[in-house]
Nucleic acid binder design. Structure first.
Lengths: 131, 131
DNA sequence: ATTTTGTTATATTAGCTATATAACAATTTT
DNA sequence: AAAATTGTTATATAGCTAATATAACAAAAT
């Protein structure tokens, strides 16, 4: 697995798992229809508790990114299944606001923040092949 | 004061205070050189504990936005004083990443996220005068 | 039939948030 | 100079979340 946990981080472990699974999907390392490892297996791989991974999977399900089939497994939903709802767009904007505000106050220009945003985007868009 | 606390929010009160003070600065409602209210006064206004506001002020100081003069008060640093360091830019990028990733996975395009970013930026840039 | 799966339940530890009080010493105001 | 205000420090408490640990259950997969 590509997931690397930082126990010292102030970001909770279950959120680290959620984020890195999303990054894997964004990179194309995991595709719609793929099955996620069982909560017990992934937990053993990462050296964390089963419930921690379980919490992450349920967070991903709430975001509409995976589907959990009870007592069977979790699969990544297709892009067609996950339509961007206005609520989700609003949620993204709400998350974006405090970061943009802090950047502004610290003296960053709109162009600087835009540049960083695009960098993050392109870094993920292009899979690590050859490069 | 322009600060409005939402006790039910999952965002800690001291972070709400920090964010809304930054918004006030971004909007131009508070200018460099201005003195922040004493922790006791602001706490009384907001109906929260003194230590909660104190924690917020120290968070703002860590971010390089204000200067706390021991046993005197807190003042907003000038834009010239707060130079955007590479570390701060990196911090912003780090905060931006998980949001952009989630947006991507949910199917948002680079343009959509850029548009939201600029909306947040322009909403703050123009002070609430006349409008 | 056996193993694996997510689910549910209970319990414990640790850390963070927030509040409450109190006292201290330096600064500011009167 | 005296009084009030200021940030600082300390201690204590309550509530919540994160994380772990065990255990058992029932459905699904092998």
């Amino acid at each position: 697995m590509f997931i690397q946990i930082e126990p010292q981080s102030d970001v909770p472990i279950y959120q680290q798992v959620t984020q890195q699974i999303m990054e894997g999907i964004a990179r194309g390392e995991m595709k719609p229809g793929d099955t996620l490892p069982s909560v017990r297996n992934l937990a053993a791989d990462l050296g964390v508790n089963m419930h921690t991974v379980n919490k992450s999977y349920h967070e991903l399900e709430e975001k509409g990114i995976i589907t959990i089939r009870a007592k069977s497994g979790a699969i990544i939903r297709s892009t067609e299944e996950r339509v961007l709802t206005p609520e989700q767009l609003q949620q993204i904007e709400k998350s974006l606001k405090p970061i943009v505000v802090e950047g502004m106050v610290l003296g960053a220009t709109s162009d600087q923040i835009e540049h960083m945003m695009k960098k993050v985007f392109s870094d993920l868009q292009i899979p690590a092949e050859g490069v």
